[in-house]
Nucleic acid binder design. Structure first.
Lengths: 189, 189
DNA sequence: GTTTACATGTAATCCGTTACATGATTGA
DNA sequence: TCAATCATGTAACGGATTACATGTAAAC
């Protein structure tokens, strides 16, 4: 019960499988096909992670039909797994880690579509926006305090990069809120 | 000689020390003070990494004066360390990993100021820009090919986030080139 | 009959996190 | 003397990468 918290990777796997049963190989292909193949897990990371999730009771597997090959193992979430996934998706945005874990927050946003009503999604985006605003303000303040030193122009520019990039994220949170508010939710309502 | 390549963290440490001798504790403070404390290494990561770099001949240490405390160990780069650092800074931009390692590229850009002439810095920024352009184009193509599905609006928005953020990086590469071209290099010429 | 695609797995090694230990000095 | 700051380190543990191993079936 009070076992160690799931890793990010385990949460992602759990989330994908919660959206529909899948096998290790299918997961691998799906992730590798994601835009520009940003993340493609190795066998040595993927299969042990699935086993861990099964051992801890969040997934269950049964032998599945394989496309002319060695039998595949198809995983689906258990009730406990579904609960763990939902808890992760619903978790509050932590302003302290939002800059480091922005990708994770985006994943949570994607998973949210199936789980949360529009108002809670809007609240998440607003919360994410506030955290990003605070982060950008922090970097801007740092930059003001560290006066543009003679031999440190690159550092100043690098800080401007950070400001620009996180401001783009911040702007996106507002864009996303507008888009979702404008178009009626089409989903499985 | 043909030992395993340095980790990113080791390269960063090497780079900071190449800019001026430092001790483990000072390094820790410096990194923790960086904007919003994005990365603060634990003792268990920092001190062994320094020892590894020393053991492989890239750093050397001598006992230093401590501010009323346990003696500190001050590291400085060796010739081999300086060479390894320069090689890392000069390495070509790999378009395949630029999205994942953008932060690393920014670090290289900062270190570059002390090492490379303006034209090579400009070439780096141009190369980084091209890589980002290709990445953004890839994500945009992915988005077009995966038509805005009814129940996948969040995924579409997440892709837009990626496009917006990497486009901001791309714009920054142009901004940085303009800034550096406009103002005369003040450095240690 | 050998390669290719499908599909799951294991073993060595390495690094990071967490948590704890240690040691010296200053100040309450 | 107790706490806090400066400063370096170690040990347990876990997970990722890399590389290799294994197994089935279709295709050439």
């Amino acid at each position: 019960m009070t076992s160690r918290p799931l890793t990010d990777f385990e949460q992602i796997l759990l989330g994908i499988i919660a959206a529909g049963p899948s096998s290790g190989y299918a997961l691998k292909k799906d992730l590798a096909a994601s835009p520009a193949g940003v993340y493609q897990p190795s066998s040595g990371a993927l299969y042990p992670a699935l086993r861990r999730l099964e051992r801890s009771g969040l997934l269950r597997s049964e032998p599945g039909v394989s496309a002319g090959s060695r039998p595949r193992r198809v995983y689906h979430v258990t009730a406990a797994g579904q609960a763990a996934h939902e808890q992760w998706v619903r978790a509050a945005v932590d302003p302290a880690t939002v800059a480091r874990d922005l990708g994770l927050h985006l994943m949570r946003f994607v998973f949210m579509e199936r789980l949360l009503p529009p108002d809670q999604v809007a609240a998440f985006l607003a919360s994410l926006g506030h955290a990003l605003e605070a982060f950008v303000a922090g970097v801007e303040q740092y930059r003001r305090e560290h006066e543009p030193d003679a031999g440190r122009r690159h550092q100043g520019l690098a800080l401007e990069h950070g400001i620009a990039v996180y401001r783009a994220s911040l702007d996106w949170t507002e864009h996303a809120q507008r888009v979702l508010a404008a178009e009626p939710a089409a989903g499985q309502r």
